[in-house]
Design a protein around this nucleic acid. Sequence first.
DNA 1: CTGTTAGCGCGTTCAC
DNA 2: GTGAACGCGCTAACAG
Lengths: 344, 344
Amino acid sequence: MATIRDVASHAGVSTATVSRVVSGRGHVSLEARERVLAAVAELGYVPNALARGLKTRRSRSIGLLIPELVDPFYLHVAQAVEDVASAAGFRVILGNSNASAERERTYVDLMLAHNVDGVVFGSLKPPRAAVRILQEKGTPTVLIDEPPLDLAVDSVRGDNVGGARALTRHLLAQGHRRIALLNGLDGALSVEERERGFRQAMAEAGAPVDETLISRDPWTLAAGERRAATLLDIRPRVTAIFTGSWFLGIGALRALEGAGCAVPDDVAVATFDDAPFAESRAPFLTAAAQPVHEIGALATRMLLDRITGRECGPPREEILPTHLIVRASSAIVSLPASRGAARR
Amino acid sequence: MATIRDVASHAGVSTATVSRVVSGRGHVSLEARERVLAAVAELGYVPNALARGLKTRRSRSIGLLIPELVDPFYLHVAQAVEDVASAAGFRVILGNSNASAERERTYVDLMLAHNVDGVVFGSLKPPRAAVRILQEKGTPTVLIDEPPLDLAVDSVRGDNVGGARALTRHLLAQGHRRIALLNGLDGALSVEERERGFRQAMAEAGAPVDETLISRDPWTLAAGERRAATLLDIRPRVTAIFTGSWFLGIGALRALEGAGCAVPDDVAVATFDDAPFAESRAPFLTAAAQPVHEIGALATRMLLDRITGRECGPPREEILPTHLIVRASSAIVSLPASRGAARR
DNA sequence: CTGTTAGCGCGTTCAC
DNA sequence: GTGAACGCGCTAACAG
């Protein structure tokens, strides 16, 4: 690993000159610059960002902290953050908090330890403690999907009230009056705001809100499925379900399918959030599913084993089995069979 | 930002003792340890990972370089990498290469600059140049979805040949003989292997392979849609399409829908790779779509403006409009008859 | 325009 | 068991 000193001696100049050439600050004679650049190329010199960060107290990296990467909402947020940050020459350190306040705290410490210049912070609960720490250290922070709290901090979110109202109005326009709201857990602003939008639209239409049809569950597919299943036992039965997140919506669809309810003929469904491939109305795809999680996990374990020296044999080439899942896109017959192939 | 010296003077010991306590190496008297820990807690001391990395030459962070985060395959790989790495106390630096070899190179340099201890490297083309650099620097690397190349390096991938064969056999078992293969671009091992599996299964069944039905396109939804649309003009028409990736599969479904083809009655579809919400057979979800990309991009821009000092006014609270998308889950009108019948 | 020097915050000898 | 001193690789301040 060539250092700035190697380059300097190679080019017959001082380290300061190399630094000036590499960082583009300060004036250097054309000739010296040439020699430095040649030495850089020859030695494959890459400036050590750690040392640079230690000196400049800026790391040109930002932290991205989100509750759940596979949630389509956060996935696309993450993609965009990475795009914009890398275009601006910033690295992104990824943190998946699993919606745990404790992990949020841990990650904030880790990111501070790495001297991140700022943090994009997505959370399902107002992350007061974590944000306060960031503030104390003077690290700029932008909150996603949460209000600025009592602390002064930037925030960005979608129009929850308006979106929920539009969705509810749409359902009302379809003639529905008995509408259930499957929402996320208490404490999240988005949850409150979506409920508010729902109630506003219902009130405007003079439709009664049956409080027993409003529920709060984690933003997960399983929770949506469970809740929707119990919901269907309530009489008179709902004619429409409004779900507060994409996973809840998919879960509800699954429950309806399990209960033999036609959608939208028996029960209509509408959800907050969209996913990139939600558009097709086609029956679902037969697939050869790769063990995606295992692939990532194994790769990382292998890497860590190399890093720690636990593994030092010849290179390994691991090939993991693929799993065939037959669905309606290719099999006219086997409707129930495909359900067995539940994913992890 | 408290440093090790602050803690040391606060606890009345030397920095070396603090270091020993914090890193857990070396023996320290119980009393000194207590005092140090108290000082750490009081000052909110977080060891500076940069300085530590500079000294130890290890950063406890790994790079994750993938072509496309929103691809369900890489998404789940990324999730798993983050899980495993963070459980082992390693940070993950995310890089989205957009399948560009140039960006891969850039990212490798960035990761080297950050002294990553290793790299999990997913690529759509053998990333020879980039891997060679990593090897030269002695940075452990694990390749995802590519073979070890001529360089000695670990690799992990799914069983492409076996999966493709199973998928093709399934289609053959459904009575299909005239099967198209919509595959990815040349040069990727996964593409070659999937084609090989396809050909093997066809040969075993004595089914002829029509070379005009085999195509190579980027792994994108748009490419899949375009290619499937032109494919449908070929006579005799195919009765089944095997797509090499999830996005190609969804694109094909969309083209079939556009052409008024019933799936699977007119044309069956089966794809490599699965996505987490592919399971439902229900009609698709009406949604209030948030501007996910804009949210992430705006948040990052706001953050960078704070970091660079371009913005120093009071906190901003941005709320972006939501977009209602009406689909079949709530609108009885727009269901093509052919489709509704396919469902029970 | 360029070189010398002094730390950034930490881990690590090597004395005590 | 503990502290003083050095250096990781780099940039910034100051000379020259």
